[in-house]
Structures are given as structure tokens and as C-alpha cells.
């Protein structure tokens, strides 16, 4: 990789920072240089987000159809899985799974919901009032 060939293409980091990469100068010596981005990896990141957005839409659909509670949607929306959510809320995964059932969710106390609210960075009222 030559320094002058460092790609200067698009990136989600545009407007935030350029990233430092290593390449060879004219004398063949490796030096740091700045790259604005590389299409190949920008496309890979797009792909990851397509995936995420697809999962969010699926989750919203499940909530609308009454198959899952809004907590499930919020977990997916926050890019979490049940193990991450479990560590943020301090609730066991088996309990999370129960709380994803709309019938169980409806009976949850504010105290339990507050744990979710903190994990999702929103208020209990926002969770209760959620419409998809």
C-alpha cells in the first residue's frame, strides 16, 4: 500500500474525522497518512446497517401483530441481544423472555419497567406510551 494510494472515498466518519492508516512513501518507508474512507468498507458497514434495520422492522411488525411486547422492539432498536439487555437490566434472560410476551408485559410494574427505561435511555412513560 502506497501512501499516495490511500483511498479518499466516502465514509460514515465524513464530517467527524478522517482515519489514520499506514502506507509507504516514495522511499518505501511506512508512514501514517489520513484517509477519508474506502468504498469497500463503507459498503460493508452499509450492509451491517441494512441488517440492523431489517431486524428492527421485523421486530416492529411482531409488536404490531401482538406477538411481542414493545420491550422486545426496544431491545432490537438499541442493537442489543438478550444477553446485553440482561446485563444492563440485571434481569435474567428467562425473565426477559417472559417480558417479551405482551400478556406478561401488560402486568409489569413501574419498578421493573424502570430498569428497562434506564437500559434504553428513555422514560417509563415513553415505554408505556409507545406506539409502532
Amino acid at each position: 500500500m502506497k501512501l499516495e494510494e490511500l483511498p479518499q472515498e466516502r465514509s460514515a466518519l465524513n464530517g467527524y474525522t478522517r482515519e489514520l492508516c499506514y502506507g509507504k512513501d516514495e522511499e518505501g518507508k511506512f508512514r501514517p497518512g489520513l484517509s477519508s474512507g474506502w468504498e469497500v468498507k463503507a459498503a460493508a458497514l452499509d450492509l451491517a446497517w441494512d441488517d440492523v434495520n431489517e431486524r428492527i422492522e421485523e421486530a416492529a411488525e411482531l409488536v404490531k401483530r401482538g406477538k411481542k411486547s414493545p420491550l422486545y422492539y426496544l431491545m432490537i432498536k438499541n442493537l442489543m441481544d438478550s444477553s446485553i439487555l440482561s446485563s444492563y437490566t440485571g434481569l435474567w434472560r428467562i425473565r426477559l423472555k417472559r417480558h417479551f410476551k405482551p400478556s406478561v408485559y401488560k402486568r409489569l410494574s413501574d419498578k421493573v419497567l424502570a430498569r428497562y427505561a434506564e437500559a434504553f435511555n428513555i422514560s417509563v412513560e415513553e415505554i408505556r406510551g409507545m406506539e409502532l
Binding site: M1, L6, L13, E19, L20, C21, Y22, G23, P32, S35, W38, V40, K41, A43, A44, L45, L47, A48, D51
Partner: peptide
């Protein structure tokens, strides 16, 4: 394809120096 995309990210994403 998604798996390959993930490899590309681990390999080239910010922090690797390329």
C-alpha cells in the same frame, strides 16, 4: 454475503491501519 461483509469490517474498519 453478510458474513463476508462482517469480515471486511473487522479487517479494514477504523482502527486497523489498513
Amino acid at each position: 454475503g453478510r458474513y463476508l461483509g462482517h469480515i471486511v469490517r473487522m479487517q479494514e474498519e477504523i482502527g486497523t491501519g489498513g
